[in-house]
Structure formats: C-alpha cells, structure tokens
C-alpha cells in the first residue's frame, strides 16, 4: 500500500514546471491528502521549501537518492 494519495513525476524538468504541476495537482486533491513528487532539478529542494512555506501546505519530507529528489507534501486544511 502506498503512503501517498497522488504522485507527480517531474524528472528531467526545470523550475518552474515541477512547482507548477504540483500546484495543479494539489488543487485537485482533498485537504489532508498527500502528494509525492519526484524531481531531478537540484533547485527544486529550495523551490519546494519556499512553495510550502508560502502556500501553507506541509512539506512532510524531502530527500535525495542518486540524483533524484523526492518530496512529500500534505495539502493544507
């Protein structure tokens, strides 16, 4: 069983596409649901931190493995 509700593959894409697609995905989700995002742009770490801070959505986790960055975001109530 997966521990997220939706997933977004943003590998190979530069800012702002990962953020833009995440914004769209989140707006289609219910409050409290989680979105997992996979990206390869190193700038996405800072970008998602800033995005969550400003939108109030919660950045549950952020990690890197072999050049792939994974983010878990919980939609704000």
């Amino acid at each position: 069983m997966s521990d997220f509700d939706s997933e977004l593959d943003a590998t190979g894409l530069n800012c702002p596409l990962p953020i833009l697609r995440a914004k769209k995905a989140i707006s289609a989700m219910e409050a409290g649901q989680t979105l997992r995002i996979i990206a390869t742009d190193p700038g996405s770490v800072k970008d998602f931190e800033a995005f969550c801070k400003q939108t109030g959505n919660e950045l549950l986790s952020s990690g890197e493995e072999e050049g792939k960055f994974t983010f878990m975001i919980k939609k704000a109530a």
Binding site: P16, L20, A50
Partner: peptide, 19 residues
C-alpha cells in the same frame, strides 16, 4: 542568485500566458 519562479507560480494564474 538564480532566479526563482516559485513566486510567479504562487502569485499568478497557472495559464500559459500568465506563467
């Protein structure tokens, strides 16, 4: 000092034109 487009995405609409 790389430009960040996060602000643009948060503040503007998500249409192609706006972004």
């Amino acid at each position: 000092q790389r430009e960040s487009y996060v602000q643009t995405i948060i503040n503007s609409g998500t249409s192609f034109e706006d972004v």
